[in-house]
Amino acid sequence: MGELANCSRCNGLFLKGSSTVCPECRKQEEKDFHIVYAFLRKKQNRTATVEEIEVETGVSERQIRQFVKQKRLHPVHFPNLSYGCEKCGAAIIEDRLCDSCKESIQKGLHVRERNASLEAKKEQQEREETNRTYYSW
């Protein structure tokens, strides 16, 4: 059975299942999606930006970007749709992070791995030095 949760949109209580919003807000989201999709299906609107869609349909920018993030609206078909990178907020059309943030994370991981490797070598050398036996005659 689902657990009791607060709706992320209206803060009302509902039994949480696969959705993070209550049934009423879910219906509103579906309604909003159909409004946006109907707008974008028109040939002259396919290149509309998120801001233009918001003005014409009345659906919030946040909700439109959420549809893109959920892959309900595909930037391949509508090239000016995007959502924000989870780290820096830059406009992206796929994944969770922009290329710049991915690159900085990769660099950080490489530096950490290199430092761990150097630390391991240093510890190994210290162990070898302490295990040496010296003989004097």
Rank of each mutant, 00 (worst) to 15 (best):
L4V: 02
A5I: 03
A5Q: 01
R9F: 15
C10L: 01
C10S: 05
C10V: 01
N11K: 03
F14C: 00
G17L: 14
S18W: 08
T20H: 05
V21Y: 13
P23D: 01
E24R: 01
Q28D: 13
E30Y: 15
E30G: 13
K31W: 09
F33C: 01
F33K: 00
I35Q: 06
V36I: 07
A38L: 09
F39H: 15
F39Y: 11
R41T: 12
Q44H: 14
R46T: 12
A48C: 11
T49K: 09
T49R: 14
E51N: 03
E52A: 08
I53V: 15
I53N: 05
E54R: 11
E54N: 11
G58S: 06
G58R: 13
G58C: 01
V59W: 04
V59T: 03
V59Y: 04
S60Y: 00
S60P: 05
Q63H: 04
F67A: 03
K69T: 06
H74Y: 05
V76E: 15
F78N: 05
N80M: 02
L81F: 03
S82R: 05
S82T: 04
G89L: 00
G89F: 04
A91K: 06
I93K: 02
I93Q: 12
I93F: 08
D95L: 07
R96D: 10
L97V: 04
D99N: 05
S100G: 11
S100Y: 06
K102D: 09
K102A: 07
E103R: 00
Q106L: 15
K107S: 11
G108I: 00
L109T: 10
L109Q: 06
H110E: 09
V111H: 06
R112C: 11
E113H: 15
R114C: 10
L118E: 04
E119I: 06
E126F: 04
E128Y: 12
T130M: 13
T130P: 09
N131T: 06
R132T: 07
T133A: 12
Y135K: 08
